[in-house]
Amino acid sequence: MTMKITVDRVSQVLASIQELAGKQVLVGIPATKASRDNEDKSPLNNAQIGYIMENGSPIANIPARPSLIPGVEDQMESITAHLEKAAKAAMSGNAEKVDDELNATGLIAQAGVRNRITNGDFAPLAKSTLAARRKRGRTGVKPLIDTSQLRNAMTYVIRKKD
């Protein structure tokens, strides 16, 4: 049996695989989304608030209310499926499809985090926090959602690995 190569796409496939291997999808609050519309004059930015909410702050008596990692974990099955599609696209030399699948991965992870912020079962807010909200004219009692700035700052980026 003889084999005839009609199209040599090896270099295209290798380039596509190398490009995929050199990228990462990051979910969270990038520096470009960290600043806040500071109606409450908070000295903290969204990234700092997100870190405190994710890990808690014993010194400030703030319990951990994790949403980033659990939100991504909630979507892991779908994320994995898109990453597999990205790998298959790379193996066929389709760099455009690789980018499409990485973007789909980021959007799904971002939606998972935002959904966790909106619907998560978190430790209730302290009475003092609720009183401070009422003083500012806010009536919501849900943790992590006051102005929605933290939730809206949650996004994804695709960047080259360091």
Score class of each variant (00 low, 15 high):
residue 56 G to E: 02
residue 4 K to Y: 10
residue 82 H to M: 15
residue 64 A to F: 03
residue 17 I to Y: 00
residue 17 I to F: 01
residue 2 T to D: 08
residue 35 S to E: 14
residue 97 K to V: 08
residue 131 A to D: 15
residue 58 P to W: 06
residue 57 S to G: 05
residue 48 Q to S: 07
residue 141 V to P: 00
residue 81 A to M: 11
residue 26 L to I: 15
residue 79 I to R: 04
residue 128 S to Y: 00
residue 75 Q to L: 09
residue 40 D to F: 14
residue 8 D to R: 07
residue 150 L to K: 05
residue 42 S to M: 11
residue 78 S to G: 05
residue 59 I to M: 11
residue 76 M to P: 00
residue 8 D to S: 04
residue 94 N to E: 08
residue 161 K to W: 04
residue 122 F to C: 10
residue 55 N to A: 08
residue 33 K to C: 03
residue 93 G to Q: 05
residue 108 I to V: 15
residue 11 S to T: 13
residue 1 M to I: 14
residue 151 R to C: 11
residue 38 N to M: 09
residue 123 A to C: 00
residue 23 K to M: 15
residue 85 K to N: 06
residue 122 F to E: 02
residue 151 R to V: 12
residue 3 M to H: 05
residue 16 S to M: 08
residue 119 N to Y: 05
residue 126 A to E: 07
residue 42 S to G: 02
residue 23 K to Q: 13
residue 73 E to H: 09
residue 10 V to G: 01
residue 15 A to K: 11
residue 38 N to A: 13
residue 75 Q to K: 14
residue 75 Q to C: 05
residue 63 P to M: 07
residue 56 G to N: 05
residue 110 Q to M: 15
residue 61 N to P: 04
residue 26 L to P: 03
residue 107 L to M: 08
residue 126 A to T: 14
residue 94 N to Q: 09
residue 123 A to Q: 08
residue 99 D to K: 12
residue 20 L to Q: 10
residue 105 T to W: 01
residue 138 R to A: 14
residue 87 A to K: 08
residue 70 P to M: 07
residue 112 G to D: 06
residue 99 D to C: 00
residue 134 R to I: 04
residue 61 N to A: 15
residue 82 H to R: 12
residue 77 E to P: 03
residue 4 K to E: 09
residue 117 I to Q: 01
residue 107 L to H: 06
residue 103 N to G: 06
residue 103 N to H: 14
residue 70 P to W: 10
residue 160 K to T: 14
residue 72 V to A: 10
residue 32 T to D: 13
residue 33 K to G: 04
residue 110 Q to G: 01
residue 64 A to K: 10
residue 76 M to A: 14
residue 59 I to C: 02
residue 17 I to D: 00
residue 117 I to R: 01
